[in-house]
């Protein structure tokens, strides 16, 4: 009886130990993945990506950018149209009201940006060089 009790004790202790370890690892992994896909990181990533794309672009180019992961991270009451704004050679990406990342670009072009609801992607059209007649 004592031996059986000892064996049950060892089993219980080991099971609890394994469960605690699994809980600890799960919490750690959750923390890592939450940091990796955070809104602030995505705002910076897309602001810089869009600025570099505009810098490399020429008039009459149309660029379609898939921002699905950013759209999933935005605040639910934050309008999709407000995510990307381009003004005075500065690109701003905001996924929430109290947030946002801005990055400037040097290409003197007129950019029209809009969110294509059907395709679920952001579209950037490089219209013309600023100061040029159409």
């Amino acid at each position: 009886m004592r031996k059986r009790f000892k064996k049950a004790n060892i089993l219980t202790e080991n099971v609890i130990f394994i469960i605690l370890n699994l809980v600890f690892l799960s919490i750690l992994l959750l923390f890592v993945f939450s940091k990796a896909g955070g809104a602030a990181v995505l705002e910076e990533k897309y602001a810089k990506q869009i600025a570099l794309i505009i810098d490399s672009a020429k008039p009459e180019m149309k660029i379609v950018l898939d921002m699905e992961d950013a759209l999933g991270k935005r605040d639910k009451n934050w309008d999709v149209k407000n995510i990307v704004t381009i003004d005075n050679n500065i690109v701003t990406v905001k996924l929430r009201e109290k947030g946002g990342y801005s990055y400037s670009f040097f290409n003197n072009v007129e950019v029209i940006d809009y969110f294509d609801k059907e395709g679920g992607k952001y579209v950037f059209t490089i219209k013309k060089y600023c100061g040029e007649n159409e």
Binding site: N89, S104, F106, N107, N108, V109, Y129, C130, G131
Partner: peptide, 13 residues
């Protein structure tokens, strides 16, 4: 140069 090459350079460049 800036006009012909269609560039806008602020204080960061």
């Amino acid at each position: 140069f800036l006009n012909k090459c269609h560039l806008v350079l602020g204080d960061e460049y």
